[in-house]
Design a protein around this nucleic acid. Structure first.
Length: 215
DNA sequence: AACCTCCTCAACCGCTCCTGT
DNA sequence: CACAGGAGCGGTTGAGGAGGT
């Protein structure tokens, strides 16, 4: 056993107390942050700051922008409400159809689904799914978790009942991590997804019209 | 008009993942 | 390699509006 001496232990204790102290203050600071709905003034402060300085560094953003919100809250507000690229308003039938297809392939990976639908956020899609689409599927006798007829769901519960298996080399897990895949148009998983969606659309069309030939 | 129930969706929370040191 | 801090994700909550009684 190495004798580290009194100074060493004092430094360790001092470092520990410092960490404890900063953590405690951070927790207190977060509790003092404003919560609840955003005001137009706050929106204006946040948008003008991001337009000036760009996205990112969310933790330090509130201080610099003059907001009494936590960074997390600022990020969420920008991503889900203030971003100029967002498409507000009703989800169209085409978008709805795409959401169902993507959910069948990906399960509750909302950010991944949102990445395939321009102008829509993960939160918006998640809400739409939970409040409307899942009920719609149930009313049609389809299990919204497995996308199979109700009472016959025998899929893997650990993956939200998803029955489809990805080829090992291009599963979402292998292409840029698990939940942070944003579905950029150039990655391997993205084109894989495109082919799956096209395949599905093709299957449906050939069911309706046997003369339909897929490319 | 008052009350109740249901629905929607913005926002929060807790956790995991990613990245820099 | 280990750790800390920041970013991002999905599940959940609750305020407020709409509709019914």
């Amino acid at each position: 056993m190495v004798n580290k001496g009194k100074t060493y232990y004092l430094m360790q204790i001092s470092s520990f107390l410092y960490k404890l102290n900063t953590l405690e203050w951070r927790k207190r600071a977060e509790k003092m942050m404003k919560k609840g709905p955003w005001t137009p003034e706050e929106d204006e402060l946040l948008s003008s700051y991001i337009k000036r300085e760009g996205e990112g560094r969310w933790r330090t953003l509130p201080d610099k922008a003059g907001l009494r919100r936590c960074g997390k809250s600022c990020r969420l507000r920008w991503m889900n409400y203030l971003r100029p690229s967002l498409k507000r308003g009703h989800i169209s039938a085409d978008e709805e159809d795409l959401i169902v297809r993507l959910h069948r392939l990906l399960g509750n990976r909302w950010s991944l689904i949102a990445g395939r639908i321009p102008g829509r956020t993960d939160n918006e899609i998640k809400n739409y799914w939970n409040t409307r689409l899942s009920k719609k599927l149930i009313s049609r006798g389809i299990d919204p978790r497995t996308h199979k007829p109700l009472l016959s769901s025998s899929c893997d519960p650990d993956r939200n009942g998803i029955c489809l298996s990805f080829p090992e080399e291009i599963s979402p897990e292998n292409v840029g991590g698990t939940s942070t895949v944003t579905g950029s148009p150039d990655d391997g998983f993205s084109s894989f997804l495109d082919s799956l969606i096209n395949e599905e659309m093709c299957d449906e069309k050939t069911n309706i019209d046997p003369m339909y030939v897929c490319s």
